[in-house]
Design a protein around this nucleic acid. Structure first.
Length: 822
DNA sequence: GACCTGCTGCGGGGTG
């Protein structure tokens, strides 16, 4: 048979769509075309838009083109890999692709390779690979850790990476980049496609995915022009006077949330924390007992079985509403729900849009999201969100670069399987976005690290993992090391947690060690919506039974804090100004008028070109408040910096408190703020040096180092079922930190810890931008009689969280040095 | 290194 024309192939795909009563969208046809022309690229499409078929179909069509006798013969080898960031998506993609394969009459098999795949299936896959393999970045690395993997990937033509926006900002993307660099080098014609929701740095997303290097294919970004209308409905309190100035639970509006759930066919209620999720679930059932059996709960610490049940029940409409955390952001592409409720700030525009998009899936349907503020100032946030959506402003994802921990792990992965050649591998590694700048010296350090353990650890055998063989290849020869390495592949370092299970063995979920440690047998606590009595603790398992008691602690987990994004922050400042200038334009701002007026009367409401500082005295001491509206993380760095700079003028020690809107410096002595302002308090000239001096970066880096040590393979987390305790992981990673600091200060992993602190935690770039902005604003130094509506939440927060500045002795010593310099 | 509000995600005992 002659080579089929591209158009004929596309017609074939279109026919298949027609059989199902579908019509391809413009972007799908565009993708088919680009794929068949040999392009790599990124497909920018929202969930539920048919993005999967946009790439599955052309992969199959291309196979037909290259293998004219497709229908008669069994396809040979693996043709395509589909990577998903979560296992639950693999099942869906597998079903979708099986449908398409069958309809086109291809002799293709679809296989899933993830942590759920049984050993026997894995073995079969290695000798007889499926034509389409659906897997995760981690499992792909496990394949690269298998002997003879070159044959396995021999026929590979395409890799698709789904939800690339989700991976982009994490070290899992670095795993993907490295695996791709290896496969691209094995298969120069490999086509690579990413699927991504809209992010602010789409071009960069493509650079990260495709990397550089000679074999880079012609590439393209295809945008699915599916504009969804999003309607933001704020649930307004009746009387703003009775609405709290601070708080995070939002339970005051419970009675207004119930009717929304009752009147909708199905509802998702997004909360910001797992504890909040538990509390809302209970309270909803308290006030609306008719929801019993129709309301469920879903968060990351609830067991996989229960979560699967919840997802399926929602899909089959057995239940009506689910209270959840971001555990339902991704994954199960279930039937769209009718209403979405967001409780408290979503902290970012993209997250809010993604959640809203869970409703109103029909073309032209409006996605409606109800926003439930948890305190007064969040009313401004809902206006900010609405405006940001209208302006199409979404966040960027910052890719990790120079993550040497991941690279060290990857090199051992290659050494575990067939070994690697240093020259060839360096070239591949350099073709990735993450390691484009790696120097020869850094590369040699890494090789030395995996071979000898490096300068600090060369006396210990267990860190001498890899050997350079006479043929020049680097290999692992010790079976124990290989095994331990396979068990440690990946970049997610979680808390070790305790399993909660009934006496008969059914698992309900997990909580953190410290929470159970504070309970005694017989105590009750709430979990997964149930009142449970602790019976006994055995190893890492806590046995419980159901309890009738109504009172009990609700567990909290030490999750990461979600920082307010700079996009949202920018709109927040805009809307703060509007609350003073044009409050009647928006119902939320109008509602807020009494509060805005009070703030303006007592102090000031800043316009967009103004920067507000409040200074007042109370029985607690002297309060100095700043309102950059930049989010907690930035405030953390900025407050330490400002405190340090003021202390250069007059030796004072501060207690620092902050939230997403501003921060407070509290002192028992008067603060020379005017003088500080005259001395250019916000300048960015010596910023890096001043940050170094003001922030306790060693402590921050030490915490970062825990993950780095684990990813780089310095700390072994234990065999499955026999995990080591957190205390062990913490103390051994700290030990490494100290050993390196003392004996090998130029250790690359140690340096990486500090770099991560400055890039991701203190976010120096954003801090600089914020300070530059403030320098151009008009400083309003207001001296209210007492606390203002803006300052109140921060002051309340302080009673919870106390961060004192560095020890006074250190401070004085440093200042003396500074004085001597001049 | 905690708990005072604080998310999510992966992997797993094999030499063709």
């Amino acid at each position: 048979m002659e080579r089929m024309k591209k158009q004929a192939l596309i017609n074939l795909g279109t026919e298949w769509f027609a059989e199902k009563g579908w019509k391809p969208f413009e972007f799908q046809l565009e993708t088919w075309d680009a794929y068949l022309e040999g392009f790599s690229g990124i497909l920018n499409a929202p969930t539920g838009s048919g993005k999967t078929y946009a790439l599955l179909i052309p992969i199959l069509l291309d196979y037909i083109r290259c293998n004219p006798k497709y229908a008669e013969e069994k396809a040979e080898g693996m043709n395509a890999i589909w990577i998903t960031p979560i296992r639950a998506l693999a099942r869906e993609i597998s079903l979708a692709s099986e449908r398409a394969i069958e309809a086109m009459g291809l002799a293709w098999q679809v296989g899933i390779r993830s942590g759920d795949t049984s050993t026997s299936v894995r073995k079969k896959q290695l000798t007889n690979p499926p034509q389409l393999l659906i897997t995760t970045p981690e499992s792909l690395h496990l394949l690269l850790a298998s002997k003879g993997y070159r044959n396995f990937f021999g026929n590979l033509g395409t890799i698709v990476i789904d939800e690339w926006h989700e991976l982009m900002g994490s070290k899992r993307a670095v795993l993907a980049e490295l695996a791709l660099s290896r496969l691209k080098s094995l298969l120069p014609a490999l086509q690579i496609w990413g699927i991504s929701a809209t992010i602010g740095n789409m071009d960069q997303a493509m650079s990260v995915l495709l990397g550089s290097g000679e074999s880079t294919m012609p590439n393209k970004i295809i945008k699915a022009d599916i504009q969804k209308k999003i309607e933001v409905v704020t649930v307004l309190p009746d009387e703003i006077e009775k609405f709290p100035w601070s708080g995070h639970l939002g339970i005051h509006l419970l009675s207004k949330v119930v009717p929304i759930i009752q009147q909708s066919g199905s509802t998702l209620i997004f909360t910001n924390t797992r504890a909040m999720c538990e509390i809302w679930y209970q309270r909803l059932l308290d006030v609306a007992p008719d929801l019993a059996g129709l309301l469920a709960m879903h968060h990351g610490s609830i067991s996989r079985e229960i979560r699967d049940w919840v997802e399926q029940s929602l899909h089959s409409e057995k239940i009506k509403a689910v209270v959840c955390t971001s555990s339902l952001d991704l994954g199960v592409d279930f039937r769209p729900v009718e209403s979405i409720i967001q409780i408290g700030s979503p902290k970012g525009v993209a997250r809010f849009i993604q959640r809203a998009g869970r409703s109103g899936h029909q073309p032209n349907a409006v996605s409606r999201i109800y926003f439930v503020p948890t305190h007064s100032l969040e009313l401004i946030e809902s206006c900010a969100l609405r405006q940001a959506i209208d302006d199409g402003q979404v966040e960027e994802r910052i890719p990790y670069v120079r993550s040497f921990d991941v690279l060290a792990q990857y090199l051992v992965t290659l050494a575990v399987s067939d070994g690697f050649d240093a020259v060839e591998t360096l070239e591949e590694v350099r073709s990735t976005f993450s390691f484009a700048s790696i120097s020869e010296a850094e590369w040699q350090w890494l090789l030395n690290f995996i071979v000898t353990g490096g300068k600090a650890l060369h006396q210990y055998n267990e860190y001498q993992k890899v050997r350079r063989d006479p043929d020049g290849l680097f290999r692992v020869h010790d079976r124990k090391i290989s095994l331990r390495h396979r068990l440690s592949i990946g970049t997610i370092v979680g808390e070790t947690s305790m399993i909660i299970q009934y006496q008969r063995g059914k698992r309900i979920g997990t909580v953190e060690e410290w929470f159970i440690a504070q309970l005694r047998p017989g105590d009750t606590f709430w979990f997964a919506g149930k009142s449970l009595e602790l019976i006994r603790v055995q190893g890492m398992t806590a046995e419980v039974k159901k309890s009738k008691k109504k009172k009990g602690k609700v567990p909290s987990w030490l999750g990461g804090r979600i920082p307010l994004s700079s996009q949202l922050a920018q709109y927040l400042r805009l809307k703060v100004a509007q609350s003073r200038e044009d409050a009647y334009a928006e119902p939320e701002l109008e509602k807020l008028i009494p509060l805005t007026e009070l703030q303006d009367r007592r102090s000031h409401v800043p316009l967009i070109d103004e920067f507000l500082i409040e200074y007042f005295q109370s029985s607690e001491g002297y309060h100095l408040l700043f309102y950059p509206f930049e989010g907690r993380y930035i405030h953390e760095g900025m407050s330490a910096l400002i405190a340090w700079r003021i202390a250069q003028i007059k030796p004072i020690s501060f207690t620092i408190a902050m939230n997403d809107y501003g921060f407070e410096l509290l002192s028992d002595a008067p603060i020379p703020i005017e003088e500080a302002l005259e001395n250019e308090l916000f300048n960015t000239i010596d910023l890096s040096a001043d940050i170094q001096a003001s922030v306790n970066s060693i402590e921050l880096a030490k915490r970062r180092f825990r993950d780095i040590a684990s990813i780089a393979g310095l700390v072994f987390k234990g065999y499955p079922g026999r995990e080591k305790k957190d205390k062990y992981l913490q103390s051994s990673s700290q030990l490494f930190f100290e050993v390196f600091t003392d004996y090998e200060p130029d250790n690359l992993l140690l340096r990486q810890a500090f770099e991560e602190v400055f890039v991701f935690q203190l976010d120096e770039t954003r801090l600089r931008t914020a300070l530059d902005r403030i320098q151009f604003q008009k400083i309003i130094l207001s001296q209210p009689e007492k606390a203002t509506p803006y300052s109140f939440p921060i002051i309340v927060d302080r009673t919870r969280e106390k961060l004192s500045t560095e020890r006074l002795a250190d401070r004085i010593r440093k200042m003396k040095l500074a004085l001597e310099r001049e």
